[in-house]
Amino acid sequence: MANRTTWDRIRPYVMIAPAMAGILTFVIYPMGYLIYLSFYKYNLMNRAKSKYVEFDNYKQIFTRGDFYKALGNTLVYTVGVVALTMILALLTALWLKRNTRLNAIIQGGIFIPHIVSIVSVSLVWLWMMEPSHGMLNALLRSLGIPPSHWLQSSRTALVSVIIVAVWQAIGYYALIISAALRNVSPSIYEAAALDNASRAKVFFRITLPLISPQLFFILVIMTIGSFKVFDIVQIMTGGGPNDATTTLVYYIYSYRTTNIGYAAASGVTLMAIIGLLTFVYFRLLSRKVHYQ
């Protein structure tokens, strides 16, 4: 009998043990190790030669132009992707709000880019944006508009990457926003209709305030997601031309073998940014729960 109660007491721990072991090994320990590495000049070939360098890696980060360039690119990318996706997804969701068969099919269609691998998406757009034989320049030429260099000029490369990212994201966020729109009680709209409120007024005074918690939520999720951008850059531009599309994660990636300590310090910086955004996210989450 005594055995049974002991077993009862430790059972929940046994049940969560494998899951917690995974988290400890592959999330928590690596976070600590990353911070540790960021204080070292790490020697990959001969670890005994690794040297403790205090804050040297961090001092280097904040004095180097290429880091600020990567951070700046990431910020431009994030602001561009978040703002454009937000506006276009909101418009799409409003347009496809009604629960009809056609709307469901269209929503299913615009969602496809989101479930396809970023590798495929990047390669298809790389081909379409090819300056001499690509589809986009053929289209521009036939409309009498001068063709663009797209990804091959440092002036247009980042914008081109943003276009692809927005194109991929719209379907997904339109879906989440339209779920939010459908949760708004119809009786509120009926009341507004009785008052003869104009459509613009209904949107700005009723719809927007009612879905604003979800919109904030999406805003934070999208910002965190955009800060981690890597795949699309790696495949489409390789950070170029002239570092025009080097983002924070790409920057870390490019130092991962040559200067591990420095890459780790950049990683800690990314972790801090994401931590801050996550904090905001949970503040919003708790407030949202509070509302309901």
Partner: peptide
């Protein structure tokens, strides 16, 4: 925590 943070360690 994204994999982009933990991949080196």
């Amino acid at each position: 925590i994204p994999t982009q943070v933990t991949f080196i360690p």
